[in-house]
Amino acid sequence: MMIRKTAKTAPATRSLTEREAAALTVRIRKAVDNVWALLLEAQEREAWKALRHATWEAYVKAEFAMSRRNSYRLLDLGRVVREIEDFVPHAAQITQRDAAAIKDDLPAVKAEIVARIDRGAEPAKAATDVIAEKRAAKDKAKVDHDRQREQSRAALPDAVKQHVTTRGVAKTKADGSNVETVDRVSELEERVRGLEADNASLKAENAKFADMWVQYQQGGFEAVIAGKDEEIRTLNARLIQESEDKAGWMKRAKGWQKRATDLGWSGDVVIPLDPRSSDDEVISLG
C-alpha cells in the first residue's frame, strides 16, 4: 500500500493580514471541535503579530483567556495530528496525552505506522496500536526513572536529603514548575525565530537603500538628491543616444535602399513559368 503526503497538510507560511487574523481569532473563539487546528494556524501564520500583541502568550491570554501552557499543549496536539493524518484517517481522535507521548519521536512513529499498513494492518488500528505502545513505553520509562530517583534519594544521608528538599522547594517557588519552564523556553525560542525573520526582512529592505545611505553619510540629503539627479541625467542621455542611433540606422538603411534602386535593383521576384518562354510572372515584394 502506497502512502503519500498530500499538499493539504502542509503548514501555511504566509503571515496573516490584520483582517484575516481577526477572522481566524473569532473562529477559534467559536470552535467546538479541533480547536488545535485553528490555533496552530494562528501560531504559524503569526496572528498575534497581525493583531499587535507583543507575544504569543499575550495573544492567547487576551483573546481566549488561555494560559501559555495550555496553548502549547494544543499546539503540540495540532502538529502531531497534522503529521499523522497524512498517513492515517481519523488521526484527530488522538488525545493530548497521546501527543505528549509521541511528539518528540514523530518520524519513528510515522515510519512504524506505515510499515504496519504495508504489512496489511488496517490504518486506524495501526496508528492506535503504535501510539498506545509509544505511550506505554514512555510511561514505563518515567516510572523507572522515578523509582531510580527515589532509590538514589533514599540512600542519601539525612543531612543531604534535607538540603535537597529545601533547595527543591526554593527552586519551585522561584522558577515555577519544570513544565512551565519548558513552556517559557519554547516561547522564547519562538520569539527569537520571529525576531530573526524580522531582522532578515529589514536587512533585505535596507539593502535597497545602501547606496543612498552612503551618499547621505557623505553629504546629507543634498548628496542623495544629487545622486538621484545624476542617475536621471545618465538615463536621459542613454535614451537620447539610443534614439539617435536608431534614427541613424534608419537613415543609412534608406540610403542603401535608394542606391540599390538607382543601380537597377528592386524588391521584385521574377518566377519563370516556362523555361522555354520569355513570359515570366513578376511578383512585387515592395
Rank of each mutant, 00 (worst) to 15 (best):
A197G: 09
R193L: 10
V164Y: 09
D158C: 02
I131C: 05
S71H: 04
M250C: 05
D146S: 13
R276S: 12
E189C: 07
G194H: 06
A101H: 02
K30T: 10
E122S: 08
L285Y: 06
A65F: 03
K246C: 09
V169K: 15
L273D: 11
S266N: 09
V169D: 11
H145W: 11
D129P: 00
G220E: 11
E187C: 07
M250Y: 09
D175M: 09
A174I: 02
E83A: 13
W213E: 05
V179T: 14
P157L: 11
T172K: 14
T17W: 00
A115P: 04
A10F: 12
D146V: 13
L77W: 05
R79M: 08
K30L: 08
I113F: 07
Y216V: 03
I131V: 15
V169T: 10
S278P: 00
A197F: 07
V270G: 02
K228C: 09
T9A: 03
A174Y: 02
T13P: 00
V80Y: 02
R97F: 04
L188W: 15
R167Y: 10
T181V: 12
A210Y: 01
R184K: 12
V160L: 14
Q218K: 14
L38M: 08
G176I: 08
I102E: 08
E230Y: 08
K49S: 06
R193D: 12
A170W: 08
V169Y: 06
A92F: 14
A126E: 08
T25R: 03
S284V: 04
S67N: 04
T165I: 14
E46M: 07
E190H: 11
N236K: 13
D139Y: 06
S15T: 10
R153H: 13
T172Y: 15
A174C: 01
A101N: 05
L39F: 03
A253N: 10
G176Y: 05
E46G: 02
V109Q: 01
G220P: 06
I271C: 03
R82P: 01
F64N: 04
A127N: 04
D139K: 11
A124P: 00
A137R: 14
R233F: 06
G267K: 11
Y216Q: 07
D279E: 13
V282G: 04
I113N: 03
A247D: 13
A62K: 14
A136S: 15
L156I: 10
P89T: 09
D144G: 01
R79S: 09
K142F: 07
R252L: 15
Q162Y: 06
K203V: 12
A115I: 07
S67P: 04
A126G: 07
V80G: 05
I3Y: 06
G255F: 10
V130H: 03
G219W: 08
I240D: 15
L285M: 11
T128W: 10
V26G: 04
E85K: 04
A210I: 02
K171N: 07
I117G: 05
G220F: 07
R259L: 10
Q162N: 09
T165Y: 11
A99W: 01
F87W: 08
G220A: 10
D280F: 01
T55N: 06
G264E: 11
A237S: 14
I102S: 05
E187Y: 03
N34F: 06
V35D: 04
K208H: 09
D268P: 02
D245Y: 05
M250N: 13
